[in-house]
Amino acid sequence: MEDLKNELRELIISTLEMEDVSPDDIEDDTILFGDGLGLDSIDALELGMALRKTYGIRINGKTNEVRQNFATISSLAEFVAAHRQAPE
């Protein structure tokens, strides 16, 4: 799980071109959206696309608890571990 969390830190930084942020800046429980890391709805879409490309996960806004799953690195790692498939 730690490896996956670090992978997700790198994925967020590279996908969202956060050149001023290092993986160490994102704690397991840093709030990703809003006040914490400061991500917004466009970032959520961008991140959803990256999860699809990297882990074969399709985000369904109606059935997945997107807000909860995308809250922190910890929740995102649990979500990815439970739903990952071979990349498309």
């Binding site: 969202l16 466009i42 879409l45 696309m49 699809r52 490309k53």
Partner: peptide, 9 residues
């Protein structure tokens, strides 16, 4: 490929 929402917007 899917389109980047950021770049599209």
């Amino acid at each position: 490929e899917p389109l980047s929402p950021t770049r599209f917007s």
